[in-house]
Design a protein around this nucleic acid. Structure first.
Lengths: 229, 229
DNA sequence: CGAATAGTGTCTTTGAGACAGTATAAA
DNA sequence: TTTATACTGTCTCAAAGACACTATTCG
């Protein structure tokens, strides 16, 4: 089983997604060093010898994005390892998607010039470092698909939320609009999706909405399909 | 961006699935060396410095399973990297699922004592090496799930096949039985799933079945859901 | 002819989507 | 009151599932 291993390095890259200002945002860091100096990139870092992949992802989240593991859903997406994707060395990168509810502005971490949230619509204009555009696109598509048949949408929301907020998650992540009435019925009648609370949110110009929290289920049966695929 | 990289090695593990004798089978190799000498394991190997992950998977398929890339669908599943999953060194393993139509018996490859197909039902009795039981379970669940909303089932069949054979894929992978009439209608009326041919299969005791080949589509809309989830 | 497999017709039920209508708050 | 948002009712249509029926082969 001998094989060459010299100079193969393993990293994690994070696709941190949140909803802010009614848009899906991703956390990017501006590179301080070559290659791609000045370009925006996904936060990432090499794994340590005695560290599980998930733990490495949480560490990068804390170090480079100054976001604690509090209230983020972390999930492996895919591993990217094409030779020369990083010009310095052979880097195998395990992509992790981190989803959270209205996450705070990041502080600038180590080895980065800047760090901030980017609405995904604005990313068409800029070139991401390495193959990170592909990694990001793959992750967003994964998130979009998983909204259909899992309860993943609640990870974008705080502990307590209204049906309208939940609908907003679907609308902003999918980039569609949904019928409020039909969505309400679907969300409340899908077993395990939501747990009804006895309280209501402060009214925002209309009838106050009932509050819900995440239900015990993880899969949506039947699924909540996007309209035109 | 300095970090310790010594002794972190990257491998690919293959979950090769096929249908033989009306059962879902997985290809396993018997280990010739410690650790887990004599135990059955997924075929795998370390990646080479200038080799893409997919290419490494195809190489292992040829070397250790003596199966060419002919007629297999290869797809990345997930990466496993818990420290000490391999007692010799830190090994990060990218799992790939390979699906093919009634694949031949493997020849014994390098560094393995034996190689053969195992019906997945028989694997409850034996202990797989390393964390390969978890890797296998994860892959089978992925395959089962993807039958629902993609045209993946056709990768288990030869170029030309009948609706009954296609139904058999679903039944054997899911471990269920499906109504033949309803399945026929669903398969033939789902756009892009199948391409109708002008020929029929040799009869097997009844009316000869029309032959189909894979259609141009990759996703099934609406999906073909398992009944009780 | 019967037996076996392929394929279609039809009925019922479930659920999605369109959209109207009701409920409850603030100004 | 109007306005805004939350929710419910109802109708239509698409599709799943149960299951009976027809079609085409072999013995």
């Amino acid at each position: 089983m001998a094989s060459p291993v010299e100079d193969i390095r393993v990293a994690v890259d994070l696709i941190v997604l949140t909803l802010r200002a009614d848009a899906l945002n991703v956390l990017l860091v501006q590179r301080e060093d070559d290659p791609h100096r000045g370009a925006w990139a996904l936060p990432g870092g090499f794994i340590e010898l005695e560290e599980d992949l998930d733990d490495a992802a949480y560490r990068v989240l804390a170090d480079e994005a100054s976001l604690g593991s509090s209230a983020v859903h972390l999930e492996q997406v895919r591993t990217f390892g094409t030779p020369h994707r990083d010009p310095r060395a052979r880097v195998i990168s395990v992509a992790f998607m981190a989803l959270g509810a209205d996450l705070p502005d990041p502080e600038r971490g180590d080895d980065v010039a800047d760090a901030r949230w980017w609405p995904i619509a604005e990313l068409a204009d800029i070139d991401l470092a390495f193959d990170h555009a592909e990694v990001l696109e793959c992750s967003i598509e994964r998130a979009r698909a998983k909204l259909e048949y899992t309860t993943l949408a609640v990870t974008f929301l705080p502990e307590e939320f209204t049906i309208s907020q939940l609908r907003g998650v679907y609308e902003h992540v999918w980039g569609t609009t949904l019928d409020a009435g039909n969505f309400h019925r679907k969300a409340t009648r899908t077993e395990g999706f939501l747990a009804e609370l006895d309280r209501h949110a402060a009214p925002t110009g209309g009838r106050p909405a009932r509050l819900y929290s995440a239900g015990p289920g993880t899969s949506l049966v039947p699924p909540l399909l996007r309209a035109g695929e």
